[in-house]
Structure formats: C-alpha cells, structure tokens
Amino acid sequence: MTTPSNEKLTEATGVPPWDPEVDDTLVCRHVRQETHDVKTFVFSAREPRDFRFYPGQHMTFELPVDGMVMRSYTISASAARPYRIEITVKRVPGGPGSNWLHDNMLPGKEINVAGPSGDFTTDANAEEKLLFISAGSGITPLMSMTRTACDLSEPHDLHFIHAARTPSDIIFRKELELLASRTPALRLGFTVDTVSASHSWSGYVGRLNLQMLAMMTPDFKDRKVFCCGPARFMEGVRDMLKDAGFDMNQYYEESFDFGAETAGTIEEPTAAPEISGETFRVSFPKTGHVVEVSPGMTILTAAKEAGLMPMSSCQRGICGTCKSKLLSGEVDMQHGGGIRKREIDQGKILICCSTPMSDVEVEL
C-alpha cells in the first residue's frame, strides 16, 4: 500500500497549501467560550488553504494594540484537520494582546499572522509511552497533540495530567473526558488548587506533587514527558522529576508562554560571555543610545544594557515579537522561524537572535 504525497492530496482536494511566505491573512470564523476567562478563536484563510503544521506549533499574530504588537499563540487544533486553525487564549488582567482578542475578535474579522513555526512537538501515535503534563493555558500544545493522535487513530500509550485553579478552570475538560471514554490508550489525571462547595469533584486537590504523579502514572519513569505551563509550574515539575531520579533526557518543555504579556520585561539584562575578538557599536537612532558590544552579544542584550525595553518574548527567534528594522550594518541572525524571507529581504531582523558582524544601526 502506498501513501499519497502532499502534492497528490492537494491535487485531489483542489485546496492549495498555506504558504507562510505568501499567505498572511486569517479570517475569524467562530469564537467559542471555553471557561469564564478562556476563549477559542477559529480561523481559516480568505480562500480555502491546507494548513500543514506539527501539533504543538504556534502562529504569531499582529494585534492592533498601541500601534501594533506581536503575540504568539499555540495552535490548539488537530493537525489532522488542516483547513482551519484554532488558538485558545486566556484573558490576562492588564494584558494588551489577550484582552484585545477577547474584546474585539469576532467572526468575519481579519488579522495578519506569520507561521506556523516552532519545534515543541511529538507523534503521540508512535510506539512509545508518553506523559503530558500541563497547567492553565499551557494545555494548548498538548491538546493539539492529543487531538491529532485521536484523529489519526489513537495514541499508543498516553497519560495526560493537567493542573488548574478550580474544576471550572479546566480547559477542554469535557472534550478530554469524551476522548478518554472512547480511547483506551488515553488516561487522564486532573488536580485543582481549590474546590468550592458548589462543585462535585472526585479528583485530586492541591499542587501537583510526586505522590500524586505516582498515583496517576505509576510508570512515569518509563515515559517520555512533555510539559507546558507557567514558568514556575514547569520549574516545579523539573525539580520533582529530578528528585525522583527521572532521566531528564526524556523531558521536553515549552520554554516560554506563548502570548505572554511580558514584552520587554522577561529578565534583567545580562552581558554576553566575554569572548576575545573585535567589538562593534550598536546604535539606536530613535533614542540616541549607542552601546559597544563584545562578540556573541545579541542586539536585544545590547538594547537592555542601554536601558531600553524593546518588545521581546521567546528570545530564541521563534515568536517574532522583537522584529526590528536593520538600518545599516551586518548581523548574524540564527532564527527559529519567527521571520519570513521577504521580511529579511526588506531589512528586518529579530534582535533576540542577531549578533553584530559590524557596527550596526537598529530602529526599535
């Protein structure tokens, strides 16, 4: 039995693939309320397009807030249903991106995007034992992986543990329970911080700990673990697994919160390690700041050392938040998919992963 190629499938359906170098506009088709502060936004292209993405990847959205901000959101949809894209967004108090989406994104509204991109993914249908651990809106990439596996047949052996504040804050709870009821290879475990008298709850209560983990998944040491959630939650999971003697080579996590409302404030600026070689000057004409940088220092680090607070998020060249204009000079940009070739041709760079190769001027 032969498997048809992507080209043959495209020819058979008559739907061309989404080309991120050409296509950049999505149309909102539906908005679904998941919990009291979480919504799912369903998009498709203006004309039918076949979205080809790996479950766990994300797209970067241009949001008209304070001029324009870039926010990356994980695709929560199944990769096996390729004609629509879904993102699931939690409203963050004071967060410009999430609040704009919740208050303004309605069916029929268009928005510019980039991607899909990202490398946090796995094939849950492969013959290996997996453990997904998530908290809050960190459930989205793992939900995409789970939906994809169930659509393609069923997971080989998947345990899915999710932590939330209350039972009503468990995103996708009903869908996950339905999938588990129909999929013997999928097992669920939930824990919540608190339970009110109005809720009937038979699950775990309290922060995820080693005792809970061992009861939910006794063979967790034999599994490959994928984790996503707030930074402190993931730090706690890492420490818990290390203390249990887990092989951390089998641990994978999403290293930042997509859509985080932390632009420019992720961490204190730290200078790059001292490396022998020529130093260069990085100039920011709009503010008049000039910084001398050592080899290997990124332009983002230089900007922070100058006291500037540029928009940034992932710091790995993935999300596109720090996209800026290179006015002069040369840089070495090692990006992870957060910028299009045509944008590079227009002189744009991602300052989080660009190191000067000469004196440069950058417009922030």
Score class of each variant (00 low, 15 high):
I139A: 06
G229D: 12
T279D: 04
K242Q: 11
L152S: 08
I339W: 05
P93F: 07
S354L: 06
M297D: 08
R32V: 14
D66G: 14
E268N: 13
P17M: 04
R182A: 06
G259F: 03
G67V: 06
M212I: 08
F284E: 02
A12N: 02
L130V: 14
S168W: 10
N99S: 12
R238S: 12
M216V: 06
P155I: 04
D24T: 11
A197N: 12
W18M: 07
K129F: 10
D345H: 10
M105R: 03
E11K: 08
Q315I: 14
Y251K: 08
S354P: 08
F61E: 07
S117M: 14
A302Q: 02
I318L: 15
N125A: 12
D37E: 12
P20E: 07
K129V: 09
F233A: 12
H289G: 07
Y73W: 10
M297W: 11
M297N: 09
A231M: 14
V225K: 02
T140D: 05
P230N: 09
S134P: 00
R49V: 01
P295L: 01
A149Y: 05
F284K: 08
V293E: 04
H159T: 14
C319P: 08
V22L: 10
P167S: 00
E292G: 04
M240N: 11
P82Y: 04
N249E: 14
V65F: 06
S294I: 15
A244E: 12
C353S: 14
G264R: 04
E267D: 13
A12F: 15
Y204V: 13
D193P: 06
D247L: 03
G14Y: 04
W100L: 03
L188F: 06
V225H: 07
K304E: 14
T35G: 04
T88P: 05
R49H: 09
G138S: 06
L327E: 07
R182E: 12
E34T: 00
E274G: 08
V22K: 05
Q57R: 02
F258D: 11
A164H: 00
P93S: 03
C352F: 12
Q250K: 15
T262R: 13
F220Y: 15
G138T: 06
M234D: 11
L210I: 15
G189P: 01
S44Q: 07
E34W: 01
F220W: 05
V282S: 02
S153V: 11
R49I: 03
L208C: 01
I87W: 03
S313W: 08
A12G: 02
I299A: 07
S181K: 01
S202H: 10
R281Q: 15
E11I: 01
G14H: 01
P285Q: 08
D151L: 01
G203F: 02
S117A: 15
A303E: 02
E253C: 11
S313A: 14
F220G: 10
I85T: 07
R29F: 05
A260E: 12
D157C: 06
V69S: 10
E305K: 13
A135K: 00
L179A: 03
D345T: 13
M70Y: 15
E253A: 13
P55A: 04
